[in-house]
Design a binder for these strands. Structure first.
Lengths: 268, 268
DNA sequence: TAGTGGTCTAGACCACCTC
DNA sequence: AGGTGGTCTAGACCACTAC
């Protein structure tokens, strides 16, 4: 389970690493030193094979290591490239601020404000509650829930998926939740207008490598984890919704303000 | 950069995957279905090689995929094992609650309450501010800062590292920050007693694959991302500290309560 | 000592991109 | 057509763990 520890030999100043690690270490050093900052392409496998006096397969092992670290990417027919990032910052403590309710498309507003072009596909489903949702909504596992699902893009790059589950009892009170179209005024306002007010949230944030399905939906390359954000919304009585957002970890960051900052943290 | 999309052939019902992916897909299905739930060991490479009629190297490619997804681990001489997790949940909105100041070792308390054995190593350093710290503390890049660094273990498993930086101007006012030992009453209380009160925090949460250095410190296997938590603490005037916590992503989850939940979210 | 995974090689053929 | 990475093989030898 644990990575191999560097071994020390009495006849060598430093530990003896396998050749493919030497390749990876050398290239990693060059990358962080900015050796490929213009034309971000790396030398081809055969060039590296000659340079390191290693077989093509050994060089490939070293490159695979850097890919799995998220440092570089590869494309068939094109070569290897140093990865570059632009991170989108989401202020989760403001996102649906209790004192400043949005109309539900904070995402569109935020992305447009950042000078980017948002785009999303949307669908509504009725399905039995999965375990992690049933727990949070405090309903029976497998009981009926409505899922409102969003697949979000920024400038046509897949950015995140968002799945919001509503419990059956709430649907009976507020049937428009189960209708396929958008809710113009936003689900939060629609619910509030029907006397169901969200007075608080519980957020859980975790990370892991994507499932093959997630990697497909978000077009994630190897070496990129997902950031999982699970928000459970509560009325005065009980949980009323559970939203699971899956972010590409290389493109997103979540922020929270706690206490009275009054805009003092605007630098980030 | 993007993962290969499944291809569809007119003469086959489903897309033709490379053999190593078929191996990975078959084993992944068996793993999630619980086929290895007792004795979590997988068959050996040579057994799988026979079963899938593939060379040992091809089987290894498939297994490597599962390792990089964080599903299994491998150890020389032992074999492959299904990974199992236990997640530690940290309530960040309560961690240093403004209305309920701790004595600085919330970590020790939380871990002990969970019936686990905490352990940490600690050191203090004086060093020039790295870029991401200088920005957040609003000091010159490279200006003097004090780093208080913690390496934390739970039951002797490396859990997280925590680096807190204090700006030079604060050290002059509160010199004990630069002293090597623990501060008994906690740094927050020490600072408050000297008239420097933290009135709010700005938290940033991100994820990525670990650097080799992080993988070494936290003894992380392949296929496990880190969860990065950067907390900048503010007094009424300006930033007074910046804490960067690096978690093993497979062992930790962060929680926030927003609004008035009054313990309604105790299920998680 | 036997069995496990870890490293490395040499070579074949395929799929994709650019020209 | 020529260069790039992607897949696959067969085999050699090493390092670690168990018995």
């Amino acid at each position: 389970m644990y990575q191999q520890v560097a071994r020390v030999r009495h006849d060598e100043p430093m530990s003896k690493q396998p050749k493919y690690r030497q390749v990876a270490d050398a290239l990693r050093r060059e990358i962080v030193n900015g050796a490929f900052d213009h034309d971000r392409r790396l030398p081809s496998e055969s060039e590296l094979s000659a340079r390191f006096e290693a077989s093509r397969n050994t060089v490939r092992s070293g490159l695979a290591l850097l890919v799995s670290e998220g440092l570089i990417t590869s494309s068939q027919g094109l070569g290897y490239e140093v990865r570059s990032h632009e991170v989108f910052k989401l202020n989760a403590s403001r996102f649906e601020n209790l004192n400043f309710p949005h109309n539900g498309d904070a995402y569109n507003t935020d992305v447009t404000n950042a000078g980017r072009r948002p785009h999303q596909t949307f669908r509504v489903e009725m399905l039995p509650a999965p375990e992690e949702v049933a727990e949070r909504l405090r309903v029976e596992l497998g009981s009926k829930t409505v899922l409102r699902f969003c697949h979000r893009y920024v400038d046509d790059v897949p950015w995140s998926t968002q799945a919001t589950y509503y419990p059956a009892w709430l649907i009976e009170e507020s049937p428009r939740l189960a209708e396929p179209g958008d809710i113009e005024e936003g689900t939060t306002r629609y619910l509030a207008a029907r006397g169901v007010e969200q007075i608080g949230y519980f957020d859980e944030i975790a990370t892991r490598m994507p499932t093959p399905e997630e990697a497909r939906l978000l077009e994630m390359g190897a070496g990129v984890p997902v950031l999982l954000w699970t928000r459970t919304g509560y009325s005065a009585d009980r949980p009323i919704r559970c939203t699971i957002t899956t972010f590409r970890g290389d493109l997103n960051q979540m922020n929270y303000e706690i206490g009275d900052l009054a805009g003092r943290s605007e630098n980030t």
